[in-house]
Each structure stands twice: as C-alpha cells, then as structure tokens.
Design a protein around this nucleic acid. Structure first.
Lengths: 340, 340
DNA sequence: AGTGATCGATGAAACGTATCATTGACCCTG
DNA sequence: CAGGGTCAATGATACGTTTCATCGATCACT
C-alpha cells in the first residue's frame, strides 16, 4: 500500500512537502505542486485517514444514531442531518439501534473509539452509562426528539402537547364534541405528552369529552383494529372526532372506518394524525395532521453539535422546543362546519 | 486524553501487556488482568481506533451507500445489512447519495481513505471512475439491485423481468385481456426490464394486449394522475388489469381509481404492484405485488463482501439473481375468476 | 539436579501522517 | 552591496497503537 513517503520519493520532494500539498496547497510552489500531483496520480496514492486522524486527534465525521432506519421519519431526519453536515464540511455515519439499548451501546462505544466529531442521538433508548461516558469524554452530543436527562445535553424536540392541543381545538372548531385519542402506551414520553396535551385542551372546553383508546403499538394494524371496534359501536357511542397518536395509526383508522365500515371521514368522524409523513397528503381522504419538521430537527441538531465542538469548553445546555404546525387537509373538515 | 501508556504506568506493567490485555485477554495472567482492568476503569481509558487501525491496516467497518435513505426500501436493506454485518463482527456505516453522483463520489473517496473493510453500493448512480478506483485498490465491493459494469464486481439483484412476467400471467389467469403497464422511464434499468418482462409475457398470449402508460417518476402522485386519466376514458377503452412499476405508483392508482372515480379494484380493474412495501398489505384493498426480498439482498451482499475480503485474492465475480415472489392479495382477485 | 518447554511480561520498532522549527534561496530596499 | 523580509522546502519528532523477538521464571520430566 503506497504511502506519502513513496509519493515524496517519486516526486523528488520531502514528505513534509507532500503533506503540505495535501493540506495547504496554496503554500506550495506551482512547479512542485505539479510534480506531487503527478506522483500521486501515478502511484494511485490515497490518503490514510486513520493516520491523519491519529496525528491530528480530530475526525471529520458526525455520527447519527436512529431508533430504526426502516422508519421513514428517521430516514428524513438523517437526510436533513446529512445535508447540514455537508455544509459544515462533515461526513455523516449512521447507525440504527432498532430499539436495543445494547446495540446502541456498542455503536456509541465504537463512535467514541473513533473519536467522532460529534454525536446525534435520536433513539430515545440510550442508557444512562452511555450518557455518562459521553459527558465524561466531552463529546459534543445532541438529542433529537428526546429530552436530555439531567440537563447535561442539548436537545431539539417538538412540543408534543402543543401539537395535540392544536389538533383538539381544531376538531372542536369543526363541531366535534366527543373526541377520542387513539394510541399508546403512555409510558413512551412523546405519546404521554401528546395525550396530556389533548386532555388539557378538552378540559378547557365544557361540553366536550375525551375518550382514550389505548394501543400497544403505533402501527397501521393497530389503527385498523381500533377502527373496527369503533365501527361496531352504536352510532351514538362513536366519537365524532379522533386524534391519532401518529399518521400510521390514522391511516389504519381511515381504512377501517371509511372504506370497510362505510363510515364517512370526515362527515361522520373527523380525523387528525401526527407527523405528516409523506403518504399523509395522498391517502384516500388527505389527512389533517400535526407536522413534525424533520428538516429543522436535522439542521438544528447539527448546528448545536457544531457550536459545542467549536467552543471547546462546555457550553450552556440548550433545549430547543419546536412548535408543531397543524396541516389542515380534508380528513378533518366537516360538512356543517361553522362559518363554512 | 489518556493513552495506553498511562494505563500501563498506573497498572505497573508495560505498554505491550496492556495491549495484550485488550486484544488477547486469555494470554495475560489473572492478577495482571485485574490491575490493568482497574487502571483502565480508573482512568476512563478508551481505545483509540484510529491508532489501532493505522497499525493493523485493517478496519472493521462496512460501508453501505444507498440511493436515498428516506425511501423505506433502502432503510430495510440497510437494516438487513446491519444485522448480517453484526453477525460477522463488522460495524456498518451508511451514506446516502440522493441521486447525486458527485456526493456519492465524495463518500466513496471517504470510505477508501478510511480503508473500510468492504463496500456495498445500492445507489445505481456510481461513476465509472469510482468503480475504477475501487477495483484498483482491491476493496471488496458488491452491488445491490444493480448489475456490475464490465463484470468486475459481484452483485445481487432481483430478476425484474421475471417479476412482471409473473404479474402479467397472474392477471391473465384472472381473466384480464387488456393489460396496462404504468411507470417509467424505460432508461432506468430496473424499470426497463420490468417493462420487457411484461411485453414478452403478453406476446406469448394471443388475444391479450399491452398498453404502456409512461410516467416520469415512480411516486404516488404519478399513479394518482394516471388513474384519473384512465377513469376519464370510456369504459371499453380502459384496461382491465394494470401492472404498476412499483407499489407507490400502484397506491396512487388504487386511490384515484377506486376511491375517487368509483371504479372497483379488482372487479373493474385488477391491480398489481412491485416491491411489497410495508404498506402494501394495509391499503384499502390489500395490494397484490411482486416482492423484492430486502433481507436476502442485505444478507447476500454482506456475505459476498466477507468472502471477498477473507479470500484476499480476487475471487471470480458472482452475479446473484433472485427470483421474485408474487404475493397475491385482493387487489388482483377478480370476481368471475375462472375456477373460483 | 539438569534440561527443555511453557508461560507471562518486556521493550523497541513500526505504521502513515501532521507539525514546526530550521534552512536556503530569492527579491526588495536603502 | 549589505541587510531584512518573504516564500518554499526540509527533516526530525510525535501521535497511540500492535507486533515480535527476547528474556526470566516456573514447572515437568528424565
């Protein structure tokens, strides 16, 4: 394997000069430059990043740990992270924990061993000892869509409670009086907060009731199942507005309610999702939903890491909470809507 | 930053011993082991992977370049790759080219500089000079869902033509006589082959016709649009069976045909997709589709890379073609089906 | 008791690069 | 023409590991 030394030899210059050519090309004379360039090409030399990194102690890679990359949500966040990282001259490496804290630990260990420039955690399953490790080594770390434990790390997340609050208020404005929240479990922080937001909003409106229909998972089939249960009820006992824990559940609900049971969305039941996934705009009845801005998540996370890395010294922790936007589409716009 | 030397000092042993403890723990005496372990813990020592890699020349990371990670298809392939890599003691780093060959080039350069253990390319947009570079440096490289240029790299792909062939024959068995292929452009290899497979299958069945309805992209909205066009035709001029270029297009078709235009799927028009994406089983009418096995893609790719890396010397190129499976669901099962 | 053999530990060398103080060549100015 | 200044190039050093030849000590066996 050809090293910088052989390049220097062939070009008839010193090793230091080749290094200078590689790192600060403008400070090497044009004629020398040509000879070095030529030698590099002839020998097929490729810089050894490991040696470089060992010498400098720095790395130009940013690591991103997602909960599950199969989920397009993380794919989109990763995409935004990658773009912003590139703007900052950083490369991105991705890993997926798939909900396994042990796997995540292994990855974090690996990244620490690699001396990565910074770390973005979007898994929500990180172990306390890993946080400990990262804090102890001073590796710039930012949490995405998760709050920082003991306020030691900066984070960027959406205000989940505000999202469902806006959804509920919107449903009430559409004339709904009997609202259901479909999703669970409450123990997942994001879901718990969404439910809280819905509860509080309903409490502020006398005459409106909230029913919680719990599910174990937040996937399409869970929504399908709940939809069938609701459809089997007597009409008077059905909710007239539903807030789903996320878009997948909403999709399942829409399919079982609207297409299979013959109920009309939104006329009989108005429906709001959460996330604004790509398919939300293209469902049978376009889905009203609470948007979680993946691009902002990604950009902000990179910026936080970069600021921390540039500062060198510990910066005050920043907890950035993004206000989610309600994207109103047909699934929640009812006939008989006041003012329509 | 604490190094192996300081660990050795604190433990009262030599640097070599600490290294031995880290790499071949069974050849170090228990008492010494304890002292070293203790020192490592007290100092919070973490191995420097860059130095290790520089010394050994080896790296234990496998790189995967996807076309677009936002697309769940790649997420699932990446997931399978990651699992298999872990079984082989390898870590995975991911990158996404987003269709930009320049970006992809940058990533490949980076991976070559990192001296990765192997490379899996699933982008389909790799530049010839990058292939040149990888071949010249002898980096184990495998293509996924793309054929190898000039037979220099092993690859794993699905037999696209066979997939659509099976879809068409299935539709004919269901009584369809006027079949349409929706998708494009033909210049994308996979799409071109799918179209070819459909053409050949139709040609073998006298009395059956094939119409090609071209689209620029293969996304939901393309299917929505084509569906509207078809619905606007006089009934006699509509196809009675459709093969979509992928599931996204099929989804769009199903929505605009079935739900908006009032046509019935499969009674009026039978529909088959391609890919078997996660949502295919949960659409309004569950979608019949040609399955591309992501898990097999991922596993096979890793195995090919591993074999190549272990061999050291160039191995004969292996081109693995996987026969796609037709997953029959409701969207293609017509009333009046022969034998039903 | 002497001879190998085995085991554990040592210490120096090497990996490929960046860095930096030093040197040499050259030009400009007074 | 002397002297200061700039620009290029040099070459030694250090980064944190792994590796390997070497050495001492312990043990089993004749």
């Amino acid at each position: 394997m050809v090293s910088i030394r052989e390049v220097a030899e062939l070009a008839g210059v010193s090793v230091g000069t080749v290094s200078k050519y590689l790192n600060t090309p403008h400070r090497v004379a044009p004629a020398t430059s040509d000879r070095v360039r030529r030698a590099i090409k002839d020998l097929g030399y490729v810089r050894n990043e490991a040696a470089r990194q060992m010498r400098t102690g720095r790395s130009n890679t940013l690591a991103f740990v997602a909960l599950e990359l199969r989920n397009p949500f993380f794919g989109e966040v990763a995409h935004a992270v990658e773009r912003r990282a590139a703007e900052n001259g950083l490369f991105l490496v991705l890993a997926s924990s798939d909900g396994d804290p042990v796997r995540e630990s292994q990855y974090i260990d690996m990244f620490v061993q690699q001396r990565v420039h910074g770390l973005i955690l979007a898994s929500g399953t990180t172990r306390p000892e890993d946080f400990e490790l990262l804090a102890a080594r001073g590796i710039p770390t930012v949490l995405v869509d998760a709050y920082a434990p003991s306020d030691r790390f900066s984070s960027v997340a959406v205000d989940d409670a505000l999202g469902t609050r806006r959804a509920v208020i919107h449903l009430i404005e559409q004339g709904c009086r009997s609202i259901a929240f479909v999703g669970g479990p409450e123990s997942v922080r994001q879901i718990g907060e969404r439910l809280d937001g819905a509860r509080k909003a309903v409490r502020e409106h006398p005459g409106v009731t909230l029913e919680v229909i719990a599910t174990e998972e937040r996937i399409v089939t869970a929504g399908l199942h709940v939809g069938e249960v609701i459809a089997a009820r007597r009409p008077a006992e059905r909710p007239d507005g539903i807030v789903a824990a996320n878009d997948s559940v909403a999709l399942g609900l829409m399919q079982s309610l609207g297409n299979r049971a013959g109920l009309r969305v939104p006329a009989d039941i108005a429906l709001v999702g959460f996330d604004d996934m790509e398919f939300a705009a293209t469902t049978t009845v376009p889905l009203t939903t609470v948007r979680r801005p993946r691009d902002i998540f990604g950009r902000t996370a990179v910026d936080l890491v970069r600021d921390q890395a540039e500062a060198g010294v510990p910066l005050p922790v920043r907890t950035i909470v993004i206000q989610p936007e309600l994207i109103v589409r047909e699934s929640s716009l009812r006939r008989g809507r006041p003012g329509a």
